[in-house]
Write a protein that binds this DNA or RNA. Sequence first.
DNA 1: CGATCGGTTGAGTTCCCTCAAGTTAGGTGG
DNA 2: CCACCTAACTTGAGGGAACTCAACCGATCG
Lengths: 241, 241
Amino acid sequence: MEGRMAYLDRNPGIDIAQRTAVFGTAVADEVPSLAAFGAKTSHFKPHEVVYYEGDPADRIFELAKGSVMLFKLLPDGRRQVVEVLRPGDIFGIPAGKEQNCTAETLTDAKVNVVDMNHIAGSPDFQRQITRCLAAQMQVLHEHAVLLGRKSAMERVASFLMHLVPDRGGTECAGPSETGGDTRQLKLFMTRQEIADYLGLTIETVSRVISEMKRRGLITVERNDEIRLNKVCAMCQLTGKH
Amino acid sequence: MEGRMAYLDRNPGIDIAQRTAVFGTAVADEVPSLAAFGAKTSHFKPHEVVYYEGDPADRIFELAKGSVMLFKLLPDGRRQVVEVLRPGDIFGIPAGKEQNCTAETLTDAKVNVVDMNHIAGSPDFQRQITRCLAAQMQVLHEHAVLLGRKSAMERVASFLMHLVPDRGGTECAGPSETGGDTRQLKLFMTRQEIADYLGLTIETVSRVISEMKRRGLITVERNDEIRLNKVCAMCQLTGKH
DNA sequence: CGATCGGTTGAGTTCCCTCAAGTTAGGTGG
DNA sequence: CCACCTAACTTGAGGGAACTCAACCGATCG
């Protein structure tokens, strides 16, 4: 009814599970750490499901390499991507007995998995989890502002700036840089996934990107590869300045 | 520009701080627990600020009694309430060195405060934090779906249903109840605060509430006191069924 | 070379926002 | 006790940003 074009319509025949999980924020490219706690490592191809919403939540996952998204579905098929994870992020920690999101890979991914009880006793690990959850929380706060208060243009600009390390943050490095105020980005997400992350439709995302092209802010090298021609100008569009 | 009517326009002369924190989910009415770790207890009146975005984040807060909201502001004054806390919730745990939200009371409130280092060593407490953060995370996921994918009517219905314990959840108690499918709710929030929580304008919230009145779903006893006449029907409007 | 998949573009509509003018409920003081 | 004031909320009219539906485009692949 009030819904945007539904995920379930696009993907007929999907059986939905239900309820309980988590997500993150991080930096590096390959990170070991749960390994120390006797984790098993699993490998995934792009667009494979790590777990479904409603699966029993008795293990802790750590993204070691690649990219994973967490999303929730409404019964009529509307989808919201609630977090996009990067290497180092911990996920799958439940509040109840079941996962509350579905976790699906965006790229090839390496995931460390440990049984919950296995590490419940380690203070070191508890501290690490706390740190990680707090960081993820902060990202979720930021995202709530985006979803609740930003225009389509601001959402897409914010999304792109999040992919630029060391820019747009508290102490932005500024456009210094040898070679001008420009950056090459790899998206790892389809327009549909971006739309479901930003609370928009695929058409709106496409239109905004076209508008940015028209203004000379970006060059679309490939569908999943964008060159920011004016990083600072893009940053101005995020609504944070 | 693309912004909704701005918080700063409504509250001229407010000086904004900036950056880093957290929030929650809970149950009881008065909860001690940090007390065991030598916490100091502070009392607050309604609409007092516990800390500002940008304040140094070196303490942990636990809401013992009352209600607190966390919000973020954009520079042009748009506000997003990112979490509404209940007794038992822990907040103020930073990802960086600064709070990333402003914390403001909604009601009279009692808050336990402990120095960060004071409890860093306790595994018991670490575990409790993890549990609490995971629960808050789940609420944030849910809220992202609301902000990204739900209509105004669905948002308000979801908001009201969140105030009804034991209903609308995974295993809803159903309309059994002695005395019919009805419930009295106290809001503790103004229309403006509700709007800023749900990513709407005050006018839209007001219109939706009026529409619910017209349909006989609710009776507005006072501005901050609403009677749900048909809890199940309200639940149907949340988009989760 | 047609088929398919992901993305773009256009036309029309709708939901919610903006602006502006009421209305109501409390509180205060004459 | 009533007139007045203010703050919070409601209601209306109009407009615009983003949605829906539908057609089209371009790249990749068997």
